[in-house]
Design a protein around this nucleic acid. Structure first.
Lengths: 143, 143, 143, 143
DNA sequence: TTTT
DNA sequence: TTTT
């Protein structure tokens, strides 16, 4: 039986994406995303709780991440949960849960200034369509 | 800035929920949920991939889980991601990512027969409303 | 600014899908989906409320609907809201809001018996992958 | 069988919310929300499509809308679909589909300046927790 | 490690 | 009627 595995996040990047360009032309990006929550504790004090998420983006979304996403920026991410196994430095099996992105949308109207000034045409320039999906296929288009 | 942290799953319970009744009258349930995905590999063979999720349910949802949920049953779960830190048996810090449920709905029209026959009024009896929501507790409310 | 327009439904088909095969080889299916809600009114009586949704599915999803979906069946639908304008019989402008499906998943483990007995290999036979997406593209695959 | 009826939108308010304060102390807000989509047509031109949604918010969310939401502002809305019947001026039955909000979150870090200068303490002042959830009311609770 |  |  096929199931549903869907994650929807709105949060801020903890750091610039790290992008690797793989042999064969594919690429993959990793970054962390913070989602903040607020609640009142028993004494009525306002408490903030931050949850950190590991985001992985492949191919076109990785390239979009490399070009447009910066530390601090607020984005929408839709994807699926995936728990990977790996061996740590002591050769012990460890698990990490990631969100593999299917769609990323830049929020807030204006990308973060990148503060490095290296490129006047950089992340600050207007970005026309700020939602990116894993594949904009001709037959996915509305009409 | 408050964010959004939402998970939506449709899958099958890997085992009966384990429920603990806490001092103070609260309770908490844990179970695993499998979501299955299918894809074709490069040779065109159909491959199944199962993702396992750790679900935690508190209070009313824990009691609902204890009463109505059984291994194998198909359910809808909505909740939020939370990564907890704990010390393993070698006193090393480990992380586990769970979905804290806000809403659970039983799918498929009819709960799984429980196969133990211990109770004629058990899980087999008709369950009228099969969606359960977590009453918002003091420690979940915003601001 | 690109936005997000997403609908997630779990409900039962009100009737068999109506499918039209368009010139050019494309097809489109329409059906209604009921989602039921329960609440207690002020006197504490349990009240049921049914919401009816107009679902539209294109191309591959339309063909999947034609082959596999039957009145009464419980499904998961993910899609987007679209409000269309049309002229009614008195030539007045009317509006109808539909959900254009991006993904449909059959729930409950087993498709509804079709009740017509015309075909021993019909809807009753096991359906392997019961989630259908608008395009299973090679580069959408996991791993 | 209880179902799932969920809508998730990220878009911009088409106008300031209209809020009515009902007898009995309750209140209700209405506003429209635009979600923008982009696609390439057959000639490869970039085309924008705007979908307009009717949002209704009750009680605490209505008050939040009145205080904090302004025309043009980008927000996240989660809610459920509801189609209402009404009689138009010619006494004909008409239908309107609305999204009844369960949660609203202000995006982009900074509410829109209101441009009227009527109130130095207005929408421009810092808003600490920018996610608001509907307290579950008696008429929304499951059984 | 983000944001307000 | 919004936004870029």
């Amino acid at each position: 039986m096929a199931g549903i595995n869907k994650v929807i996040l709105v949060g801020n990047l903890g750091k610039d994406p790290e992008v690797r360009h793989l042999e064969g032309g594919s690429s993959v990006a990793h970054f962390t995303l913070a989602t903040n929550d607020y609640y009142k504790d028993k004494s009525g004090n306002r408490v903030e709780r931050t949850e950190w998420h590991n985001i992985t983006a492949w191919r076109g979304l990785a390239e979009m991440a490399e070009k447009f996403l910066k530390k601090g920026q607020q984005i929408y991410v839709e994807g699926k949960l995936r728990t990977r196994q790996y061996q740590d430095k002591d050769n012990q099996t460890r698990y990490i849960t990631e969100i593999v992105a299917d769609e990323i949308s830049m929020l807030g109207g204006r990308p973060q200034a990148d503060g490095q000034g290296s490129n006047g045409q950089g992340a600050e320039q207007p970005v026309e369509a700020q939602t990116f999906r894993q594949e904009p296929e001709i037959d996915q288009l509305p009409f």
